[in-house]
């Protein structure tokens, strides 16, 4: 076992010995670990976001501006201006896209490390799939419990003042994205005319 996993093994495995009934303990233990992964991931992504928000804001402003310009050009039937603005909008989008990759890795790295630890303990454990038959390993179960843990933590997250502050900033971005015109908006305007 990796040195890192050895150091956390006794702590992690404690969650799997709560009741003494192995199947129940497996689900409870995996849920707790998934929850730990979600919580660390949320702190990690919020930290990354706070550090890079100025850059994100700058590129996002560019993207929204050129996207809106391209839609305006399209509305006026100006194909050349549409193409030009759209190219620049896509360039700006490319930048925000790769920034988001970095931010998203901040959210999910704990999950991969938890799975890596589980792999050392539960690699050979299989579960029968009810009704369908066959067996599945621990990974699909972890994914399901990770999603459950995410939604379980969501209401708690919204009550923590640190996350409230981050949410406020995020909401301001969402407002800007909402101001970004899409083709669907254009179609709706046309219907009204």
């Amino acid at each position: 076992m990796n040195q890192l996993f050895l150091s956390v093994d006794s702590f992690f495995i404690w969650f799997y010995r709560l009741s003494g009934y192995a199947p129940f303990d497996f689900f409870v233990g995996t849920f707790f670990l998934a929850l730990v992964a979600v919580v660390i991931g949320e702190f990690s992504i919020s930290f990354a976001f706070l550090l890079t928000r100025k850059s994100i804001q700058h590129v996002q402003d560019q993207m929204v501006n050129y996207q809106n310009l391209s839609i305006d050009a399209l509305a006026l039937g100006d194909k050349e201006s549409y193409k030009a603005a759209n190219k620049l909008a896509n360039d700006a989008f490319g930048k925000t896209f790769f920034m988001q990759i970095g931010l998203s890795s901040a959210r999910i790295w704990p999950a991969f490390l938890v799975v890596a630890w589980m792999n050392t303990r539960f690699y050979e454990v299989d579960f029968e799939v009810p009704f369908i038959g066959g067996t599945i390993g621990f990974i699909p179960i972890f994914i399901l419990l990770y999603v459950a843990a995410y939604f379980a933590f969501k209401p708690i997250r919204n009550r923590i003042s640190y996350f409230k502050k981050v949410n406020k900033i995020l909401d301001s971005y969402k407002e800007k994205t909402r101001n970004m015109k899409s083709l669907a908006d254009l179609a709706q305007k046309k219907k009204k005319l």
Partner: peptide, 17 residues
């Protein structure tokens, strides 16, 4: 190898900052 991917993701997160 999940350890490899998980560790790389930590680095990607730092590098993207």
């Amino acid at each position: 190898d999940f350890t490899l991917i998980g560790s790389e993701l930590i680095g990607i997160f730092i590098g993207s900052l």
